[in-house]
């Protein structure tokens, strides 16, 4: 396996919802719960889970937009939460984010070219004419033409705006791209264009992706390894084909079974889907209320993420036997 790029160790993030006038109870949300995760250079790690499972919080921790409640994140061996101002700036050059909504993530008062150029100005890279040149070069790479450089975001379609967002993330030549639901706001026919582009760019620039999505089909197409999150924890992690061909965790099975198949002849589901994710912390497994395989031990002890087979991790007391 190739070199370790990011290592996440026992990271926790709790949000204090506090008490208000109408709400006397103090509530704590454990958005990211004791997560260990490794990202290797050159791979695409897919992070999948339903809304509120903490996948975006994890992304924000990695990019240092949030401080963890406890735990460490190492980038090329150094703890990112110990960086000084100078080191942080270089870190931010190396790690860039692509956002979900191409409408709210672009400044409406700036032209496409100046949006893409801004990171270069902030990081004092190149002279003015060099900057212009590299902007145009990158615009061509992401499929935008020269004439569009001076246009403003509202003149572009959703797919083209996402291309601008991608160019802005790439202009600093980062090593790691965190793509947080990059295609979920786009129409089906445009999704495919952007997914192809992201694959091409990964090749051309030698990127590493952390690809976050709730769409199991998109994750399947893009990822080398996949981590499945449920209520702040990673419940299963394995190579792409293992997850889809032989899921170990009941939640992974439920997700796959819930996915509508595009074959009208396959209308039956392999598993009954019941319940909703419960935010309240319970003793034992967080999936127990929805799990068809629930047993006594599930409400007594929390299952930890263990290596069940070579490079296959699962947090279930019955992994491998169900």
């Amino acid at each position: 396996m190739s070199a370790l790029l990011v290592e996440i160790k026992k990271i926790n993030k709790k949000y204090n919802l506090g008490s208000g006038i109408l709400n006397s109870q103090k509530r704590i949300v454990h958005a990211v719960n004791n997560i260990d995760l490794q990202l290797y250079r050159g791979e695409t790690l897919g992070l999948v889970g339903e809304s509120g499972c903490g996948k975006s919080t994890l992304a924000r921790l990695i990019i240092r937009l949030e401080k963890p409640s406890s735990g460490h994140i190492f980038f090329q061996g150094e703890d990112i939460f110990c960086y000084n101002k100078e080191r942080l700036k270089t870190y931010r050059r190396n790690v860039q984010l692509i956002f979900q909504d191409p409408y709210s993530s672009l400044n409406p008062r700036k032209s496409a070219a100046s949006i893409i150029k801004e990171p270069l100005i902030i990081h004092h890279i190149g002279k003015s004419n060099e900057r212009e040149e590299s902007v145009l070069e990158l615009m061509a790479k992401v499929g935008l033409n020269k004439e569009q450089a001076d246009r403003y975001p509202h003149e572009f379609s959703g797919g083209q705006r996402q291309r601008i967002g991608i160019a802005r993330a790439l202009i600093l030549r980062p090593e790691l791209i965190i793509a947080d639901e990059p295609v979920s706001a786009l129409d089906v026919s445009i999704q495919a264009q952007i997914l192809n582009l992201l694959k091409d760019l990964k090749q051309d620039f030698g990127l590493t992706y952390l690809f976050i999505s709730h769409d199991l089909n998109v994750i399947r197409h893009m990822s080398d390894r996949i981590a499945v999150m449920y209520l702040g924890k990673i419940v299963e992690m394995a190579a792409n084909s293992d997850i889809y061909n032989r899921p170990l965790h009941p939640y992974t099975r439920m997700l796959l079974s819930a996915l509508p198949s595009c074959d009208p002849k396959m209308k039956r589901r392999s598993m009954v889907i019941r319940g909703e994710a419960q935010m309240e912390e319970a003793i034992g497994c967080s999936f127990q209320s929805r799990c068809p395989y629930k047993s006594v031990i599930c409400s007594d002890a929390e299952p930890l993420l263990k290596e069940i087979e070579n490079n296959r991790f699962c947090a279930c007391h019955f992994a491998g036997s169900i």
Binding site: V188, S189, Q191, A192, L195, D215, N217, V218, R220, H221, M222, N240, S261, C262, D263
Partner: peptide
Amino acid sequence: IDSLPVGCTGGNEDR
């Protein structure tokens, strides 16, 4: 139909 990330059969498509 063709632009879906996983083909309609959901089978062994080439990633």
